[in-house]
Write a protein that binds this DNA or RNA. Structure first.
Length: 276
DNA sequence: AGACGATGCGGAC
DNA sequence: TCCGCCTCGTCTT
């Protein structure tokens, strides 16, 4: 489930495995052999939004974006007998006793580390919601750009150039926790509401990374082990965990959004409703 | 066994 | 705003 929390969790695990080690082998689909990388050491593993970066010692970096279907697996390094050789891996990093193998990545490329700051994808990303203390004011500013203010808040907070790392699951969960109807345009929100949305997103995703599990409903509110771990996501027709009213699913720009019509009213009294 | 839908993204319209 | 991606887990026949 690759949203930002998944990628940051992965970067942490991969970093513990690889940082300081020497490459035994590296293959990136569609990329020829880079002679400089033979025997290179891994300097760092980093997540930026939904992008994973692996930095190598002679000034090269690997950038991988999983898209919806990509997956990483940690496997024992078995020389000459890749377990996943049948389905060509997007990426395989082998160092010492372990290999990290990625299948089905949306994008994978090797680039010069010094070119990262001008990379067409990376340079457009909004501040990372999983930074230790994310620049929320900058996110709010980006969401208020002309042309963005009239978009539905749900669509806006998923835009990776506004804030990076948030995906379709947290989109619904965060708006539920903030009591905001997903179809409201950004300009209709109460003062400070958007900043609270991003702050809540930061805390939810940070907790997911540290707990190694994506769950937004606190344990004390879950009577049985089978109780839902998410407030509204993928719970269409099921009772809202707060008010028991049926959760609704709408499609916004081709993506499902789940919300509770009672807890997230379309006409919140606190909203600034001035006409434009 | 087959249908369906999904966590994301960009290109076409 | 819609669709394709050719992948994979889950649900239905």
């Amino acid at each position: 489930m690759p949203e930002g929390d998944t990628i940051h969790r992965l970067a942490h695990r991969m970093g513990k495995d690889l940082v300081g080690r020497t490459l035994t082998a590296l293959s990136v689909q569609g990329v020829g052999v880079v002679p400089e990388l033979a025997g290179a050491s891994v300097e760092g593993v980093e997540a930026r939004g939904k992008h994973l970066l692996v930095h190598f010692e002679p000034g090269w970096s690997l950038r991988v974006h999983l898209g919806m279907k990509g997956r990483w697996r940690r496997t024992p390094a078995v020389p000459g007998r890749g377990r996943y050789a049948a389905s060509p891996a997007s990426v395989q990093i082998t160092a010492g006793p372990v290999a990290w193998t990625c299948a089905g990545a949306y994008q994978a490329e090797l680039i010069r580390t010094r070119h990262l700051s001008t990379h067409p994808r990376l340079s457009r990303l909004g501040p990372d919601l999983l930074a230790p203390s994310p620049d929320i004011a900058a996110m709010v500013r980006r969401a208020s750009f002309p042309g963005y203010r009239h978009r539905a808040v749900a669509t806006c907070i998923m835009d990776q150039t506004v804030a990076s790392g948030l995906g379709n699951v947290y989109k619904s969960e965060v708006l539920f926790l903030e009591g905001i109807h997903p179809a409201l345009p950004v300009h209709a929100l109460a003062e400070g509401a958007l900043a609270k949305v991003f702050d809540t997103a930061h805390r939810l995703m940070r907790d997911s990374v540290s707990r190694r599990r994506r769950e937004t409903v606190p344990l004390v509110l879950r009577p049985s082990p089978n109780s839902p771990r998410l407030w509204v996501y993928r719970r269409e027709g099921d009772p809202c965990l707060r008010c028991r009213r049926a959760v609704v699913r709408i499609v916004q720009e081709g993506r499902s959004t789940y919300f509770c019509p009672s807890c997230q009213p379309e006409d919140p009294p606190q909203a600034d409703r001035k006409k434009e």
